[in-house]
Structure formats: structure tokens, C-alpha cells
């Protein structure tokens, strides 16, 4: 029988710890496929964050680093400056990247650091028990916004892709979603473009991926996908915010 679906070579053959229906796993697969298709597995280095994806440095079978909370872009900078010919990417959650790590991500982008960032926006701090993230939507109930996020108290959610796309050093910035097959297809394309941007030395690249957290959202996996589509996408519009052709 012909094999039509297999584990990408860049993924290790081991069980993942993600909850059932969590879209972290899909995003992992898309990255691994992109690495395989670009044939850069042996050159690739992943920098893992602190968050639900802390073990992604085990799941990707390439060389890896575990960074401290929010600092993956600084760690990736150190690696890339020593090994400019290697492909370095970070995988970060929204608490990691858009709260504690804002300084590191902004300045990595501003420097035009030739790294790729996969930014998983699930609108919540998942690993620590569903607290409000900088990306939590107004009105969204979390363990630290029991009555829903209030603008007066907490301000409005941060749109990182829009923010980073105004920086000269950013070469490719896109927001995608993995809530349905069409979205997954586009996400794959964006992730591949981000890696290509790095490979061709054009500058900083980031793909923000809207993702679900059925566990901390308190929803079934299916309901979570629908909630993402109906609530997150209107606030976080999908698309490419910066493409390498715009880089002068």
C-alpha cells in the first residue's frame, strides 16, 4: 500500500503532551513539513519558550535550546550571530512573546535579526492555568478576569503583527489561523515563506498563528475552533502585513 500521510522527518516519533483538540500539534506539524520541504533539517535550530510548548525542543528532532520565559528571540540572536549559516527559529506563546518578552521581540525585529518566529496566539496563559494574556479579548473570561477582560482595568489586547510590521527590520510578518483546512493550508504557506525569508537573508520573519486552548477556554475542541473563528479573527485580521518585496 502506498503511504500518503506520514510523520514529517523533522518531528521526533514520540507522544506529545498537548491536550486533545489543542492546535499546538497542528502548528508543530506545519513547521516540520516546511523544514522538510525546504530540506534544511540538518541546519535548523529551534529555541523553545516557557509555556505549554516548553517541550517543543523535544518534539522537533533538530538541535534545540530551552530559553527562559520571553527571551527566546535574544537566545536566537546569540545563536544566529555565532552561526549565521544556520536556520534558527523560536516558537513562542502570547504571554511569552507579547507580555514578558516584548522587549526582546521588538528589538530582534528592529535589528532585522535573521531569525524566524512562530508566535502562537491562543489569547490566554495556558500553562499556568488560564490567566489573562496580553492578547485576551475584551470581555473574555479567564481565571484572572472572572467578569471578563475590562478595558478600563486591563487595557485592550495587543496586535503584535501590526506592531512589528512597522519596523524596518521586519521582512516578513503574517497572521494566520489553524481553525479550518483552508486556514491550515495558508498557515503552512506563510510558515514556509517565513523560513525562506530567513534562508535568503532578508531579515526578521514572524508568523502569528491563532490557536485554540480548549482546556483553558472551557470548551470542546470543536466549539473552540468556532469561538476562534467568530471572536479572534474579527479582532486579529488574517493576512500578510509585511512581505520581503517591500524591503528596500
Amino acid at each position: 500500500m502506498r503511504k500518503v500521510f506520514a510523520r514529517p522527518k523533522s518531528m521526533k516519533d514520540m507522544p506529545m503532551h498537548y491536550c486533545p483538540g489543542c492546535t499546538h500539534g497542528i502548528i508543530h506539524r506545519l513547521i516540520a513539513e516546511a523544514i522538510d520541504e525546504l530540506n534544511v533539517f540538518e541546519q535548523t535550530i529551534v529555541v523553545a519558550p516557557v509555556g505549554c510548548s516548553v517541550f517543543c525542543c523535544d518534539y522537533f528532532d533538530c538541535d534545540a535550546y530551552g530559553a527562559s520565559h520571553g527571551r527566546a528571540p535574544a537566545v536566537a540572536t546569540g545563536v544566529k550571530r555565532v552561526l549565521p549559516d544556520k536556520i534558527v527559529f523560536t516558537y513562542q506563546g502570547d504571554g511569552d512573546l507579547a507580555a514578558i518578552g516584548t522587549s526582546e521581540i521588538v528589538h530582534a525585529a528592529a535589528r532585522g535579526e535573521k531569525i524566524t518566529v512562530i508566535f502562537v496566539n491562543n489569547a490566554i496563559y495556558a500553562m499556568t492555568g488560564g490567566q489573562m494574556a496580553p492578547t485576551t479579548l475584551l470581555g473574555q473570561v479567564t481565571t484572572t478576569t472572572p467578569k471578563g477582560r475590562e478595558k478600563e482595568l486591563n487595557g485592550s489586547p495587543i496586535k503584535m503583527s501590526e506592531m512589528l510590521s512597522v519596523l524596518d527590520g521586519s521582512a516578513y510578518i503574517a497572521r494566520v489561523s489553524v481553525h479550518n483546512p483552508a486556514g491550515i493550508f495558508k498557515a503552512k504557506k506563510a510558515i514556509k515563506t517565513a523560513f525562506e525569508t530567513q534562508i535568503s537573508g532578508k531579515g526578521f520573519s514572524m508568523v502569528e498563528v491563532l490557536s485554540t486552548c480548549p482546556t483553558n477556554w472551557g470548551m470542546t475542541p470543536l466549539k473552540a475552533l468556532k469561538w476562534l473563528e467568530e471572536n479572534m479573527i474579527p479582532y486579529y485580521p488574517l493576512g500578510e502585513f509585511k512581505t520581503p518585496t517591500e524591503v528596500v
Binding site: 527571551r71 540572536t77 550571530r81 555565532v82 526582546e104
Partner: peptide, 26 residues
């Protein structure tokens, strides 16, 4: 070599972590 001014000391020490992990004297 490379001299890089970081955004903060938090940035510098984590860059050191990356460079040291890559095997360089840093």
C-alpha cells in the same frame, strides 16, 4: 568577531546563553 549592543541586560545575558550554547567563547 561580533560586538552587539543589546536592548537590556536581560537581552545581553540571553544572547550570551545562545552564543555559549553554540560553542563560542562569549
Amino acid at each position: 568577531g561580533v560586538y552587539l549592543q543589546a536592548e537590556s541586560e536581560i537581552g545581553s545575558i540571553n544572547m550570551v546563553y545562545g552564543a555559549a550554547g553554540a560553542g563560542a567563547r562569549v
